[in-house]
Design a protein around this nucleic acid. Sequence first.
DNA 1: TAGATTGTTAATCGATTAACAATC
DNA 2: TAGATTGTTAATCGATTAACAATC
Lengths: 205, 205
Amino acid sequence: MYADKIPDIIIGRLPVYLRALQRMSDKGLKTTSSQELGEHVGISAAQIRKDISQFGEFGKQGTGYSIPFLLDKLKEILKVDRIWDVVVVGAGDIGHAVANYQGFKNRGFRITMIFDNDKGKVGNQIGEFTVEDTEGMVERIKSTGVKVAMLTVPAAAAQTAAEKLVQAGVKAILNYAPINLNVPSSVKVQYIDPSTHLQRMTFYL
Amino acid sequence: MYADKIPDIIIGRLPVYLRALQRMSDKGLKTTSSQELGEHVGISAAQIRKDISQFGEFGKQGTGYSIPFLLDKLKEILKVDRIWDVVVVGAGDIGHAVANYQGFKNRGFRITMIFDNDKGKVGNQIGEFTVEDTEGMVERIKSTGVKVAMLTVPAAAAQTAAEKLVQAGVKAILNYAPINLNVPSSVKVQYIDPSTHLQRMTFYL
DNA sequence: TAGATTGTTAATCGATTAACAATC
DNA sequence: TAGATTGTTAATCGATTAACAATC
């Protein structure tokens, strides 16, 4: 859709803009400026204008941006103008937490399945979900066409699980295991490792 | 200690190197090269050498880096050659999850207190912790000297809670609430918002 | 109209990569 | 010694910022 390649670093900022705009919208605000949005997200006004202008002319000189309009555009660009089904692999503590997490609502995601390779956990109930056996996972994901996964298994099991997900056609993996995954470049991976974030801050203490 | 300012983007990569080296060490490996480490973390060998060389000459021509030595150095640089006490604010689902999370062990952090402003939750047991009332939080944190916090309250309560943490002398906040925090520049903030990460990937689907 | 703010260009700044002498 | 790999320099590449004409 966006013919010329958009730098990934810009894509990474769009969800932050989206989140801030959603909050403004929830407060009933109708318009904002690059200046104001920038103050909310800690990014310069010039950069926000440049980022947004990659995708079209969404603002108006003199008045700024319509919040509902920009919200719609950003959702469309990020493809969260729809709901993505998400599979969770790993029914341990983190798996439980993400399965019960209410924060995906209205952000474009809905968890639909949870898998674990521990037969002792298979069949267990987690909220509204029943833990399924990893054995049938590849087929099950293939047949449902799910493209997004969250990986919440121990580090030692993460690479193997990731390979199964790739085999099943998953194209986006949010990895909670503290290990780098090796996947084809057509598959996107994002990492969440709280210790890493904390260590990035202790340097400055 | 490191007189000339090190770019934050380099600091951000050090925990990733540390994590990979720890894994190599756990496997019993004793040496590695910038090439090999780079393959593990998906970063070019040149960049790894450049990053590491900011802090000293830790490698040897011809043989590469001693894993135990480089581990020690990185831990020292990131100040995780010690254990940091961490306070958790918010005893909801995420608070529970981080309190029970075993992944901070051996990464330099130890949760020591959990607070919530809901009197209904105060006194509850979460693992080995008793939920404490936010009312006494500032004094309690001040007196214990804790410098690191994890913020796991709803978005609407996050800014207020962050201000209390700042008041209490906290200098590093890992924020799980999907909102940007406004804090003095002397206080570091890192953000964890899984929806944001997912949205960054759906763009490419 | 006058004031405000966009979209965009050019300038600046910073980060990454390539290359290689030094040396283990 | 010969081969391997570092630390570092210079070149390249990319991202951010400043500035301003266009225009709502």
